[in-house]
């Protein structure tokens, strides 16, 4: 089942009197449960593509549908609702809220969804257990290592059990050991919860975990390949 459909999609940005084309004629489909990486050099359009899929931005041309929602037609409020209910984000710089504890950071998306305190607690503890941080629930982000911070960010992204998690360069700030740990965690959650993961990356460590690799070059899809699962070193 396709949860994301992208047809003839382009994205332009006005620059001076003209325009800069960040993405051009993109045709892609993503099915539920994918573990896909969008790879390419800096400026190739990876983050722009993720932002459009995540309804943080809209395309200039073409059609993008995420879980049946046409991105361009969504109002700001409906886009926020789509993100709140169905999409989790993981960022390169973790972006945890520094004044809140690990527990509270993970709890925040559930507060926005209006879930009761009791259910929130249960869900947050589950999410922390999935990422192996149950013992850090009361810590503040400043007391954690980079790897732990990113695991908290993963817990925050998956605590509401979204259909889709978008991760923008999730291992760029991590060392090799932590990167593998993070990727294994995400892979495990992908298999356990059936959540679709889409990464933007140019990290070779990430690429070896992918089932599907989409290569972008100068805003165009240069390659879209399925990687044999048997090759994974999990």
């Amino acid at each position: 089942m396709n949860i994301i459909i992208i047809e003839k999609m382009s994205k332009h940005y006005p620059i001076g009197g003209g325009k800069f084309t960040a993405l051009k004629d993109i045709d892609l489909e993503f099915t539920k449960g994918e573990f896909t990486g969008i790879v390419g050099p800096s400026g190739s359009g990876k983050t722009t593509l993720l932002n459009i899929i995540g309804s943080l931005d809209t395309q200039s041309e073409g059609n993008v549908e995420v879980m049946g929602n046409p991105i361009r037609k969504l109002s700001s409020k409906k886009a926020a609702k789509l993100r709140s209910q169905h999409i989790g984000f993981i960022f390169q710089t973790y972006n945890l809220l520094p004044v809140y504890t690990v527990f509270e950071n993970v709890e925040f998306p559930l507060i926005l969804l209006g879930i009761s305190a009791e259910k929130r607690k249960e869900a947050v503890l589950d999410a922390l257990e999935w990422v192996g941080l149950s013992d850090k629930a009361k810590s503040r982000p400043a007391q954690l290592s980079g790897g732990e911070c990113q695991r908290v960010a993963i817990a925050r992204a998956i605590v509401k059990k979204p259909n889709l998690v978008l991760a923008d360069e999730p291992t760029a700030n991590l060392d090799a050991e932590n990167s593998h740990h993070i990727l294994k965690t995400m892979k495990k959650l992908n298999e356990k919860l059936g959540t679709t993961f889409i990464f933007s990356t140019h990290d070779a460590k990430v690429i070896q975990y992918l089932r599907r690799k989409i290569s972008l070059l100068d805003g165009k899809v240069s390659n879209d390949e399925i990687i044999n699962e048997d090759d994974y070193d999990l």
């Binding site: 700001s76 609702k81 993100r83 709140s84 209910q85 984000f89 972006n95 998306p109 926005l112 925050r156």
Partner: peptide, 16 residues
């Protein structure tokens, strides 16, 4: 800014 951005990404509306 960072906090507001992450809140937007998580799904909080601008109005909220």
């Amino acid at each position: 800014y960072g906090e507001i951005g992450i809140r937007l990404a998580i799904g909080e509306s601008k109005g909220h």
